[in-house]
């Protein structure tokens, strides 16, 4: 009998434990129990059964769901920062919308915001992006660049308006992250916001906005939006632009010219 078959049988029997191979379930439950007291300096190997369970349950949605629920329950159960760190790393791989609530609860806290994003950024479910969008206006300026960056990395189109409002933020880290992420999102709507802001950008934002526009143009070109990309390159090739942007824009236009 394979591990997956055993896992399914365990679930079918209604056993409220992590559904992995029968031989391993006791070890997994022991590891989950260890999480309650796990802290910096503890033996990392004590958690290895959970790592093994993640591999063993691949492709078995029921077993995965049970494993994920155990991790989410652990996260919500008042565990140490080190244990939270471990759980979020695992949810990065196995997390679904089931995990989002528990992870989102960690976003406003400066100690846990990043490790929550460590999972949320990589969970493809839209609910993960929504949790970060919802958190963005509420978190401190220190945490904003991280959430903005995660939304940009996801190319989350729904966050464009939210992020563009932060281009003029008084915290330069927030404003730079906003420009960079709009560049990564790289859609027509993102370009529109960047171009609008570029006309009034303060001196310390001209470089980040110009760079973001170049990244946007490349993304538009890659997405087949040639005419929009060329229009953006022309803006960046204007007389008022720094030489480095003009050179880059000229190169971009040459690249665009060779594209069908």
């Amino acid at each position: 009998m394979t591990n997956k078959e055993t896992a399914k049988m365990t679930l079918a029997a209604g056993v409220a434990t992590v559904a992995v191979a029968r031989a391993d379930s006791a070890a997994v439950n022991k590891a989950l129990e260890t999480l309650k007291t796990y802290d910096w300096g503890a033996d990392r190997n004590a958690l290895n059964p959970i790592d093994r369970a993640i591999i063993a349950t691949h492709g078995d949605s029921a077993a995965r769901k049970a494993l994920e629920k155990s991790l989410v329950d652990a996260l919500a159960g008042g565990i140490s920062r080190s244990a939270q760190d471990y759980v979020c790393r695992k949810l990065r791989v196995v997390g679904t919308r089931q995990s989002v609530g528990a992870l989102a609860a960690l976003l406003p806290d400066e100690k846990t915001s990043h490790i929550a994003r460590y999972a949320l950024e990589r969970i493809p479910d839209e609910k993960a992006a929504q949790a970060m969008r919802d958190a963005l206006p509420k978190v401190s300026s220190k945490l904003k660049p991280g959430i903005i960056g995660s939304l940009g990395t996801r190319r989350d189109k729904k966050s464009i308006m939210l992020i563009s409002k932060l281009l003029g933020d008084s915290d330069i880290q927030v404003a730079k992250a906003a420009a960079q992420s709009l560049g990564l999102i790289g859609t027509s709507a993102a370009v529109k916001e960047l171009s609008k802001f570029a006309k009034k950008a303060p001196a310390n934002m001209k470089m980040p906005v110009g760079d973001a526009c170049l990244v946007c143009a490349e993304q538009l070109l890659a997405d087949g939006e040639k005419s929009e990309a060329v229009a953006l390159y022309k803006e960046l090739n204007g007389d008022d632009q720094p030489k480095r942007f003009k050179v880059a824009a000229t190169k971009g236009m040459l690249t665009a010219a060779t594209k069908k």
């Binding site: 990065r92 990589r122 220190k142 904003k144 991280g146 959430i147 990395t153 730079k176």
Partner: peptide
């Protein structure tokens, strides 16, 4: 492979973005 795609990158601690 959505699961493998989660390993393509890691979220960076604020304020770092690439």
């Amino acid at each position: 492979d959505d699961e493998a795609n989660r390993l393509v990158d890691v979220a960076r601690r604020e304020p770092w973005v690439i």
